[in-house]
Simulated assay, not measured.
Amino acid sequence: MNAQDPKLSTPQASQAADPLAQLQDIHLPPEIGLWPPAWGWWLLATLLIVCIGTLIFLVRRHQTRNAYRTLALKELNRIHKHYSLEQNAEYLQEVSILLRRTALSGFTSQFNASLKGGAWLEWLDQQCPKAQQQFSKGVGEALLTGPYQKNPEFDRAKLHKLCEIWIKEHRNQSQQTKKIKTKQEAKGV
């Protein structure tokens, strides 16, 4: 076999002798698209939607249950601005009515509207520990006799602050129910 043999010098013959020449380029798979996402992303999206929905529900329920507090605070501030310092008896009467209306709104089935005198003030203290007994043993006592006096003497700023604290911080009916259930669970009932 001569190196000059025409059969071996053709390009086809040289390809047959070189196996690497017969290989084709590597075909890459198509790029992975963003859609549709993997099942883990669907699960995460569902969980996120459920969490956001639950959060919105809880916030709205809290706002609905406590809307009466916002209205009562606005009314308390209106009363405070409306009555001058010479109209203390009228001021005390309006504040007392406002506290009763607030109690009726927050404690629809548990509030005894016939409470009067010291029992009424003690009830106010019981519903708001932050009041620190100031209704029955402090400035709140003016609510008992003040509306019936011509010109009662009391610290109006302290009473206003006390009523503001009570409206903001008292435990309403739904909070009372949770507390009772927690105590029963602790006892094992």
Rank of each mutant, 00 (worst) to 15 (best):
N2Y: 06
Q4E: 12
D5H: 05
P6F: 03
K7T: 13
S9Q: 15
P11T: 07
A13S: 09
A16S: 10
L20C: 10
L20Q: 14
L23Y: 11
L23C: 05
Q24G: 11
Q24D: 14
L28F: 08
L28E: 06
E31T: 06
I32Y: 08
G33E: 10
W35R: 05
W35F: 11
W35T: 04
P37F: 04
G40F: 09
W42C: 09
L43R: 14
L44E: 12
T46A: 15
C51G: 08
C51W: 14
C51Q: 10
I52W: 11
T54Y: 14
T54R: 09
V59Y: 11
R65L: 09
Y68W: 09
Y68A: 03
R69P: 05
T70C: 04
L71I: 11
A72C: 06
L73N: 02
K74C: 13
L76C: 02
N77M: 07
R78V: 00
I79R: 01
H82S: 06
H82T: 09
A89P: 13
E90H: 06
E90Q: 12
Y91D: 07
L92C: 04
Q93V: 01
L98F: 02
T102D: 08
A103W: 00
A103V: 01
L104T: 02
S105Q: 14
S109D: 11
S114P: 00
S114C: 01
S114I: 01
A119M: 06
W120S: 04
W120F: 10
L121I: 09
L121H: 02
E122D: 09
W123K: 03
L124Y: 03
Q127D: 08
C128I: 03
P129R: 12
K130P: 09
Q133I: 00
V139R: 08
L143Q: 07
L143S: 06
G146C: 02
P147T: 00
K150M: 08
K150G: 08
E153K: 14
D155Y: 07
R156H: 07
K158V: 05
K158S: 10
K158G: 01
C163H: 03
C163S: 10
I165E: 08
W166N: 02
K168I: 14
E169K: 12
R171T: 13
R171E: 12
Q173T: 04
Q173I: 06
Q173F: 07
T177R: 11
K179L: 13
G188C: 00
